[in-house]
């Protein structure tokens, strides 16, 4: 019975996630951890700072050494506006041999932080592949998604201009944010912005009349640089 619900929920993917969230809320007493869980997945090529961003957000620490991740998942209770929720972060490894394995990671995500390093043009190029794969797996143009340019503290080594990153974000109809896992600039912002998008989509999906109106207005998006 339980596994059956779980299965259905996962099958519907992020689109209808909120109905499952409300189901969770119904079945659990208030005394426990917040029932709403937003599932975030970090994607991007190796070395761009996915793990550094995650660790900074989770534990307020910056790790200097580069240690290729396998795949780690983190869970944290956070205050999202007026609501206490949990964030579940899956920090993925770039180097899985099988696309099928990556598909399995992506399927369980409700929102994606697609990270590249502004100091590495190649990492910027590969964001397209990640985007493509995510859209294929989730089959939803409006999947909560942020394009993240990391290592903005290394301005002097910049290889990707704000303009070209922004152009790509606009083309995808998503936001572009630059961050630094080192200085903590915009780290909270990317996670919270993404969670808000996830929440909005869950709310929209829960409404019975979630037709064209339910889709988010993506106009007036701006690049944010501190």
């Amino acid at each position: 019975m339980f596994s059956c619900l779980n299965l259905r929920r996962r099958l519907r993917g992020g689109r209808q996630g909120s109905s499952s969230a409300s189901w969770d809320a119904m079945s659990k007493p208030k005394t426990q951890a917040p029932a709403v869980i937003h599932k975030v997945i970090m994607v991007g090529s190796g070395g761009v700072g996915k793990s550094a961003l995650t660790l900074q957000f989770m534990y307020d620490e910056f790790v200097e050494d580069y240690e290729p991740t396998k795949a780690d998942s983190y869970r944290k209770k956070v205050q999202l506006d007026a609501e206490e929720v949990q964030i579940d972060i899956l920090d993925t490894a770039g180097q899985e041999d099988y696309a099928a394995i990556r598909d399995n990671y992506f399927r369980c995500g409700e929102g994606f932080l697609c990270v590249f390093s502004i100091t590495e043009q190649e990492s910027f190029q590969s964001t397209s592949e990640f985007r493509e794969q995510i859209l294929r797996v989730k089959n939803d143009e409006n999947i909560p998604f942020l394009l993240v340019g990391n290592k903005m503290d290394l301005e002097e080594r910049r290889q990707v201009t704000v303009e070209e990153a922004q152009a790509r974000a606009q083309e995808w109809n998503v936001s572009y944010v630059e961050t630094s896992a080192k200085t903590r600039a915009n780290v909270d912002k990317v996670f919270y912005d993404l969670m808000r998008e996830i929440r909005a989509q869950k709310v929209a999906a829960a409404k019975p009349d979630n037709d064209k109106k339910g889709k988010k207005k993506k106009s007036g998006r701006k690049c944010v640089i501190l």
């Binding site: 396998k70 780690d72 998942s73 394995i101 399995n104 990671y105 399927r107």
Partner: peptide
């Protein structure tokens, strides 16, 4: 196609890992 995910310890949840297989 089995995806294995290490789960970082949090609260009472220790030494866990996940298997993702759609």
């Amino acid at each position: 196609s089995l995806a294995v995910v290490n789960v970082r310890d949090v609260g009472n949840c220790k030494n866990a890992f996940k298997i993702l297989m759609f």
